[in-house]
């Protein structure tokens, strides 16, 4: 994507696209990767609460997976899951 020239830029560095950070992927920061075991998951959603990167995907109040575009592999979800339904493994590059 070519960057805008000074004449094309919106006034005063205003960002008119709310939530545009989603276009910036942080998944490649990861060295460890969470693996979700759906069978063990009791859908308590505690992983959703504690994920700093909103990388736990939830649909209709149910966890549906992990969005690796954003997951930085911090491992909080694996530590906090009361049912040990998430484990951390080495990220294969």
């Amino acid at each position: 994507m070519s960057k805008k020239t000074w004449k094309e830029i919106d006034i005063a560095s205003i960002i008119n696209k709310p939530g545009s950070a989603k276009d910036f992927k942080t998944g490649d920061w990861r060295s460890q990767k969470p693996v979700w075991n759906e069978d063990k998951c009791k859908q308590c959603l505690i992983c959703w609460v504690y994920c700093p990167d909103s990388a736990i995907t939830v649909k209709d109040e149910k966890m549906t997976g992990i969005n690796f575009d954003y997951c930085k592999g911090c491992g909080i979800c694996a530590v906090e899951c009361p049912f040990k339904a998430i484990t951390m493994v080495e990220e294969k590059k």
Binding site: L45, W48, D53, C74
Partner: peptide, 26 residues
């Protein structure tokens, strides 16, 4: 409840550059 909170949608979205495990973003 957590379920109710998930309904708001992400008003503070992914793609921010906070460190892994940052408490502030939580």
């Amino acid at each position: 409840t957590i379920k109710e909170l998930t309904r708001t949608g992400d008003l503070f979205t992914s793609g921010h550059r906070a460190c892994a495990g940052c408490g502030g973003t939580i």
